[in-house]
């Protein structure tokens, strides 16, 4: 067992996890943060994307023990009270989801790409969004409205 202390959505958590526990298992099973989804066994779908120290990462491909000392943000942590994050609002406005399974990962990847492009002074155009969504699979929407949502949020964030 591994002792870990980390911050999840602004709250400090100290606990003990199985050495082999994945970060996503810890978030969902121990903390009950079931907004982060598991869509595959092969690290390819991106439904599990969270931010670790401000960067998008697949929580199914990281050990909880390796997140010791880190700041983790999940989909539950992006809204401010009742006010949706601009990325969440944009998915709502643009019908950027159908079943919603991929959506938490899409939103966390969306926020990450907007922040990164802004920091680098690069333009996040439609082609760049499509390229950036490489690691997020959606089986419903055909991606068009997801791309539109991220484009809208990029202007509002």
């Amino acid at each position: 067992m591994a002792d870990i202390t980390l911050t999840v959505n602004g709250q400090r958590v100290s606990t003990t996890v199985e050495d082999r526990a994945l970060l996503v298992e810890f978030l969902r099973d121990a903390l009950g943060l079931t907004g982060t989804h598991v869509g595959c066994d092969t690290s390819q779908c991106g439904a599990c994307v969270v931010h670790v120290d401000g960067k998008a990462m697949k929580s199914c491909t990281m050990l909880a023990a390796a997140a010791d000392g880190c700041e983790v943000t999940t989909i539950e942590g992006v809204a401010k009270g009742d006010a949706l994050h601009p990325m969440q609002k944009a998915f709502n406005d643009n019908h950027g989801l159908q079943c919603g399974f991929c959506t938490p990962g899409m939103i966390m990847s969306g926020i990450d790409m907007v922040a990164r492009y802004r920091a680098d002074g690069r333009t996040l155009d439609e082609a760049a969004i499509r390229e950036e969504l490489e690691g997020n699979i959606c089986r419903c929407t055909g991606y068009h409205n997801i791309v539109k949502s991220i484009q809208q949020a990029a202007g509002e964030m």
């Binding site: 998008a56 990462m57 491909t61 990281m62 990450d112 790409m113 690691g135």
Partner: peptide, 9 residues
């Protein structure tokens, strides 16, 4: 290589 999340780790 891979996708943005893979490249971050």
């Amino acid at each position: 290589i891979g996708d943005p999340a893979v490249r971050h780790r």
